[in-house]
Design a binder for these strands. Structure first.
Length: 229
DNA sequence: GCGACAG
DNA sequence: ATCTTGTCGC
């Protein structure tokens, strides 16, 4: 599994350059953004995909697959990847970018779930995680960050990338204006065919009332209501 | 051996 | 991820 991840990282493109920029949306048209999230029960994983454009849901699909392995930090792709790929087979729309719940380049071998899915399907992906798997924030995150702040996450000894490489960002999409209550940042990283900066830009552009970008939030609740039945 | 660790 | 009530703050 680790060997496969090294191959995936080698095939990944952590920049905004594309082999065929023919399909990229012109600045005139709003991008089609997908959100994916999984929910589990005793022995299956259900993946929910929500596709949005201009604030509207234009397609929604899901798929369920048996859970093969337990959760192991660094190997999430092998637990959730199958169901996600099955859900994509049901999809008719071609998203311009996919927001994946989990890390992309912020991963020991630079091959988190978002990167795994992006390389496998050859589509642009962004990793959106609620906690940090590895890497070192450029500055302390112990104090609440103001809304709109982003702090670079650099590779340290736990990551295959050269030390100091920016592998993602802590992104504060929402924040309270209170002393006793605060919101933690999201950890955004490139999955495939997207740079660390663009990944953070996309997440910010898709977030509005809540901390999570809208496609991710809707996929989250959709997956939840599918499994609790 | 010890610590750290997406969902 | 999942198990769940109360509680804080606008």
């Amino acid at each position: 599994m680790e060997t496969l991840q090294h191959d995936i990282a080698a095939a990944a493109n952590f920049s905004d350059d594309s082999e065929d920029d023919s399909q990229r949306p012109t600045p005139e048209e709003a991008p089609i953004v997908a959100g994916v999230d999984q929910a589990f029960d005793d022995e299956t994983a259900t993946s929910a995909l929500v596709i949005m454009q201009s604030g509207e849901v234009i397609e929604r699909v899901h798929a369920t697959e048996p859970t093969e392995i337990p959760y192991i930090p660094g190997l999430l792709s092998f637990r959730e990847g199958g169901a996600i790929l099955s859900a994509f087979k049901e999809l008719e729309t071609e998203p311009d970018v996919v927001l994946v719940d989990g890390s992309g380049r912020i991963h020991f071998r630079e091959a988190g779930l978002a990167t795994h899915i992006g390389v496998t399907l050859d589509i642009p992906t962004v990793g959106v995680a609620k906690s940090l798997l590895c890497g070192q924030p450029r500055r302390s995150l112990s104090e609440p960050l103001p809304e709109g702040t982003r702090v670079a996450i650099e590779a340290d000894g736990d990551v295959t990338a050269p030390e100091g490489t920016v592998i993602g960002h802590a992104v504060q999409t929402r924040q309270y204006n209170s002393d006793s209550r605060y919101i933690n940042p999201l950890y955004v990283s490139p999955g495939h065919q997207v740079s660390a900066e663009t990944a953070a830009d996309i997440v910010e552009s898709q977030s509005s009332e809540y901390k999570l970008p809208e496609p991710t939030r809707l996929a989250d609740s959709y997956a939840g209501e599918l499994t609790r039945r």
